[in-house]
């Protein structure tokens, strides 16, 4: 009983002091303003949305077509370029919205260099992409990786342009 009394006194004091200082709008008023800014959605749905990390509301989830773009690498490298990070971020956001989707990341190389080293290089490229997605919050168990080395070029030409296209990690939905 004593505790309750103390609390009530403190609450009264706070409200009184607050009113004397800066003028604060009543709680109900503030809520109304914020609600007006948002589209009118049932409360349950609003709460569900709030649980999802910072994602712009797109079309309804079930209508979104899942397109995961490939990322590209420099010659003999498996570190992620700025462009690759931007693409991976978009891919990660899509995967977060689709928690049921499982993927295979394929690591590929251009035709230059030895078959064996390129097999390992492709593996490292796939691993780099996977590790980024995992750090972004995608469960590791949703991702498997496979290296194809230089076995599966998408452009069979023998020039810089083709080589750049072939040095890639692809994201294939299982």
């Amino acid at each position: 009983m004593r505790l309750l009394t103390v609390c009530l006194v403190m609450l009264a004091l706070t409200v009184t002091l607050g009113c004397h200082g800066k003028k604060i709008r009543p709680l109900e008023e503030r809520e109304q303003v914020e609600v007006e800014k948002q589209p009118k959605v049932p409360k349950a749905e609003r709460e569900a949305e709030e649980k999802v990390p910072p994602i712009k509301p797109l079309e309804p989830v079930e209508q979104e077509q899942i397109i995961l773009q490939s990322i590209h690498f420099d010659f003999d490298k498996y570190n992620l370029t700025d462009q690759a990070i931007a693409t991976l971020t978009r891919n990660a956001e899509i995967l977060l919205r689709h928690p049921d989707v499982r993927i295979v990341i394929e690591g590929h190389c251009d035709e230059r260099g030895t078959d064996e080293y390129n097999l390992a290089l492709g593996e490292k490229r796939a691993m780099a992409a996977r590790d980024f997605l995992v750090r972004f919050g995608i469960e590791k168990s949703r991702i498997s990786i496979v290296s194809y080395g230089e076995e599966r070029p998408i452009d069979p030409s023998h020039n810089e342009e083709a080589w750049a296209r072939n040095r890639r990690a692809e994201f294939v939905i299982r």
């Binding site: 030895t114 064996e116 080293y117 097999l119 390992a120 290089l121 490292k124």
Partner: peptide
């Protein structure tokens, strides 16, 4: 037995 211990590529 594992022969190499490095975070990059060891192969061939």
């Amino acid at each position: 037995r594992r022969v190499t211990f490095y975070s990059g590529i060891d192969c061939s």
